[in-house]
């Protein structure tokens, strides 16, 4: 049991380092905009395999403006973030080819939505990359 845990820890070390890198990038963005009135809903991080997605259910209030932003670690060349409604309709997405996607969204009604992180491209061969996501509001 302990050996398995130790092995897992060894294997996951680079992944955690990559997540930390992505997290630091998102943290900087979040706290830089905090002074401009952008409050924090959530900040989270994970490891994502190339071509894969991770999705988060979010409740967004009508009348509030939301900023959805993410960062990939330095191995990422294209990370996308997309917003879907519960019927699976794509409502908004970032269009840039980079590792720091971001877009703003002001919902017309209070509802739940899906924020999807999509790892599209890496500059090197890896099983996964560290990514971090934040939802802020104003």
């Amino acid at each position: 049991m302990l050996t398995a845990a130790f092995a897992t820890a060894l294997l996951s070390s680079p992944a955690l380092a990559d997540e930390k890198q992505a997290e630091e990038c998102v943290n900087t963005k979040v706290w830089d905009s905090y002074g401009d009135g952008w409050g924090v809903r959530t900040m989270t991080k994970t490891t994502l395999a190339p071509g894969k997605t991770r999705n988060y259910l979010v409740t967004l209030y009508a009348g509030n403006e939301y900023r959805i932003q993410a960062c990939g670690d330095e191995s990422v060349t294209n990370l996308d973030v997309l917003l879907y409604d519960t019927e699976g309709n794509l409502l908004s997405r970032d269009e840039a080819t980079d590792r720091e996607p971001m877009f703003s969204y002001t919902p017309s009604s209070t509802a739940t939505y899906y924020v999807v992180l999509y790892l599209r491209e890496l500059k090197e061969r890896k099983d996964g990359a560290g990514v971090a996501m934040a939802v802020t509001y104003k």
């Binding site: 409050g39 989270t44 509030n64 899906y114 924020v115």
Partner: peptide, 21 residues
């Protein structure tokens, strides 16, 4: 897919966010 794999980390609004709404 969206429904079955969604995480709830960001689901619940914060109190300050509620005040603003």
């Amino acid at each position: 897919d969206l429904k079955n794999s969604a995480e709830n980390t960001a689901l619940v609004p914060s109190p300050i966010e509620t005040q603003r709404a």
